[in-house]
Amino acid sequence: MIGDQPPALLVAGPTASGKSALALAIAERTGGMVINADSMQVYRELRVLTARPTAAEEARAPHGLYGVRPASEAASVAWWRAEALAAMQAAQASGRLPILCGGTGLYFAALTQGLAEIPPIPAPAREEARRLLADQGPAALHEILAAGDPATAARLRPTDSQRIARAYEVWRGTGRGLADWQARGGTGAAPWRFAAILIDPPRDALRAAIADRWGAMLATGALDEVRALAAQRLDPALPAMRAHGAPELLAVLAGQMPVQEASRRAILNTGQYTKRQATWFRHHALADPSRTHTIHARIAGPAQLSERNLADVMSFVDRLR
């Protein structure tokens, strides 16, 4: 019975929309635990560049899955799902409400809809995908993929290097396309009763928030953080190397562009990404529509949560519990 399943809250929205602040406010008021659902905040080297919760914020309520993986190891959706479920179970065992917070739609879908069970990919297929990506670029690899697995290629942007490489290695390593595997089903939805809060801010407010946050990142050590990342000499195809702002700051460190131009590009690219995030959230149900509460305003911090707004949020959360 669904009603017998334990409750979990999803707090979702585009980058810089105020998700973390809202999740923290809810956790403080409910005794909940905030669990990361952002694909970049899992990397320990990227606290500043990914706007991970600060040590002071983490001290105000329990947090999980933040900064738990080295940048040298790519985090898969399957890995995150397993870790998130373990964190949710630990929260429940301690009497806390799991509050999953992030902007990675595929992570939420892995929980609420399930994940295709794809067999392990042979090392030669993975190596071939990385070599082709490095030698020919994502657009060329996308064309190769389209010839062998057109159904998956049609779902991917030619610039989405990580997902193109993943789709290619699945096709080459298993003989079946990623779309085919996904259509076969897999793990199924996690046995939890999900409700969601979706933050859907106006575009102009979000653009301003992105610019403000970028300035704050530069002021609090983003360039030094990327310098330390570059010193590891990691594979440039790794997800952490493509975190928003990382390629631009790497170019600054290489003397290829000034900070001002890097800032302009980083803000622009992040804004374009938030458009894709917002589109994804509008077209994919995070939970039963009757259990989704949408906030059409940017919430940048607890100080900006009006009493009425927060009362509405907490009323929604109380019904979940």
Score class of each variant (00 low, 15 high):
A254M: 00
A196D: 06
A59W: 09
R321N: 12
R233I: 02
L223D: 12
S290F: 12
G67A: 03
I197E: 10
A222Q: 02
Q41I: 04
K19D: 04
L106D: 03
W79C: 10
D318W: 09
R96H: 11
T159N: 09
A231K: 00
A56Q: 13
Q232T: 14
A196K: 11
T50Q: 10
M1N: 11
M314H: 01
A87R: 09
T292W: 13
H63W: 01
A303F: 14
F108A: 05
R126A: 10
I164T: 01
D288P: 03
L156W: 00
R291G: 11
A208V: 13
A116K: 15
S290G: 15
A183M: 07
E83C: 14
H244G: 13
T159Y: 10
E117W: 09
R213E: 09
T152N: 07
R308W: 04
G245W: 06
A140P: 03
I144K: 05
L234G: 11
M88C: 15
A205P: 01
G31W: 06
R131Y: 10
R130L: 14
A230G: 09
E128W: 07
R203D: 08
P158R: 02
A196E: 06
R52K: 11
Q182E: 14
R203E: 11
G175I: 04
R319T: 06
Q41W: 07
L238A: 02
L9Q: 02
W80E: 10
T152K: 00
S72V: 02
V226L: 09
